[in-house]
Amino acid sequence: MIRVVLADDEAMIRAGIRGILGSDPGIEVVAEAGGGHEAVELVTAHRPHVAVLDIRMPEMDGLAAATTICRTVPETAVVMLTTFSEDSYIAEALRVGASGFLLKSGDPRELVAGVRAVAEGAAYLSPKIAARVIANLGGEKMSRTTSAIERISALTDREREVLTLVGAGQSNVEIAKRLYLVEGTVKSYVSTILSRLGVRNRVQAAVLAHEAGLIHAEY
């Protein structure tokens, strides 16, 4: 059972998200918060697998809450709920260690898929968010693509395969099945890839894979 703490300052939105997640028998919302401070307290108390946070909340916003949770409760994966007008927030949440990004106006099925993915150790960016994040990381597209290709050139062929699957949002278990490896070996590959690419987490690695054209080329 995937245990989730949900935080949004609008009660009706919380109810909607709770209903969507509750449609999956493998997901349980164990606590709800109306603000960032309460979200941090509940995550600390319940130690859920996933925290679903709205970026904009009063007093302590979702970004500040995500920063604290990623630092103090690193075993809890953070999924951010965003809108198209919040590019700078999205980039900062990516930097501090959030594992997933979903649009509030997106397909409800993406919410369930995103929570499941990050609970299994994968990164999850809804397609529209992925495109928006990549487009706003700074610099021209050609420059970003060239830089990404240069960075991944340091990887072995097998590491590139693993990176491509990370970029496609697959978990370690899924990658292991796909490449006929044991999960421990995949974890080792992912750790090496993050180190060689100089990125902090799977989401940043996934963005780099998209920039380098790995996902477009193979998926």
Rank of each mutant, 00 (worst) to 15 (best):
A91P: 06
K187L: 08
V190M: 05
Y189G: 11
R14C: 05
E41I: 02
R158G: 05
V207L: 15
L208H: 13
E10A: 14
I193L: 04
T185D: 00
E218F: 15
D9I: 14
A122C: 05
I13N: 06
D157I: 13
D54S: 12
F84E: 01
C70V: 15
V207W: 00
A51E: 00
E159F: 04
R196N: 07
L163Y: 13
I69L: 04
D157V: 14
P48K: 06
T76K: 11
A212T: 11
T156L: 04
L81V: 09
G167D: 00
V79P: 12
A123W: 02
G106N: 08
V73G: 10
S147W: 04
L21R: 04
I152E: 00
P25D: 09
E59Y: 10
G62H: 11
G184I: 04
L163R: 12
T82V: 09
G100W: 01
E28M: 06
Y89S: 09
E32V: 06
P48I: 09
L63W: 01
Q170I: 03
D54Q: 06
A148M: 05
A217W: 06
M1N: 12
A212I: 06
L111A: 11
A98Q: 00
G213F: 07
Y89P: 04
G97F: 04
E92A: 13
M1L: 07
S188I: 11
V199I: 10
I13P: 11
E38C: 05
S188Y: 10
L103A: 12
G138E: 00
V96R: 08
T44E: 03
M12R: 15
L102G: 06
V118A: 01
A130C: 05
L21T: 03
G169I: 11
A66N: 02
A131K: 14
E10W: 05
C70F: 02
L165P: 07
S126F: 10
